[in-house]
Design a protein around this nucleic acid. Structure first.
Length: 202
DNA sequence: CAAGAGATCATCT
DNA sequence: GATGATCTCTTGA
């Protein structure tokens, strides 16, 4: 069943951890794609120099100021969509970037090249924020969509299982964020094979 | 295996 | 006019 609005009503760091293990559902053309969230990053507000909203309340960042459970999708490097879920209170621009998922059900043939889903090999198609949007057909058209609105059955989250081994580390691709670039705000399921960047282990 | 470059465009200055 | 919350491919050790 669909996760309710109350699930999302907390700060981005808390939600980023709670999102691990939850199931992302996307209905399109009668084909339902399901995937398990395994890696997230928290962007914790206007004071967070890595957060887009630190540049101010603009046309692009406006959606980050809406209610928790709202979708924020933007285009980066001219070609990749990034899928985020708004959290925190209205007018407090916090969001969680979904960085990696494990494909579970009914992926299109073209998304099934490679790795392990019920015996089928799928490789490297959903282990990164740009890649998962492509594999799940998530685009800027989904921007500002309310995941908790029962009237829309296209995109929402379902309750998943708890994740046992969560790794906490630094966010990726934000070297410009000065004192915020080393903040431990990235979280992933250490038991998943679909992580975009693992921390180096000795 | 690591490092570097190029792709490509919406958004903001 | 500059710049990315990335990815893939190429090069070289």
């Amino acid at each position: 069943m669909r996760l309710p609005e109350s699930f999302y009503q907390s700060d981005a760091e808390t939600i980023a951890k709670k999102l691990l293990g939850q199931i992302l559902v996307h209905n399109l053309d009668g084909n339902t794609l399901k995937a398990r969230i395994v890696e997230t990053e928290a962007y914790v507000g206007a004071h967070d120099l890595a957060c887009h909203a630190s540049k101010g309340r603009t046309k692009r960042t406006e959606v980050m100021y809406s209610k928790a459970g709202t979708v924020y999708v933007y285009l980066i490097y001219g070609m990749y969509n990034m899928f985020n879920i708004v959290s925190g209170e209205v007018d407090d621009p916090q969001a969680v970037l979904i960085r990696a998922v494990e494909p579970l059900e009914h992926f299109k043939e073209e998304n099934l090249k490679g790795a392990n889903v019920e015996g089928i090999k799928i490789e490297g198609k959903t282990d990164g924020p740009g890649k998962l949007c492509k594999a799940l057909s998530i685009t800027r058209k989904h921007n500002a969509l309310d995941l908790t609105d029962e009237k829309q059955t296209s995109l929402f989250l379902e309750q998943g299982a708890l994740v046992q081994n969560v790794v906490t580390t630094t966010r990726v691709g934000i070297d410009y964020a000065k004192e915020w670039k080393d903040a431990p705000l990235r979280f992933y399921d250490d038991d998943s094979a679909f992580i975009s960047k693992r921390i180096k282990k000795n």
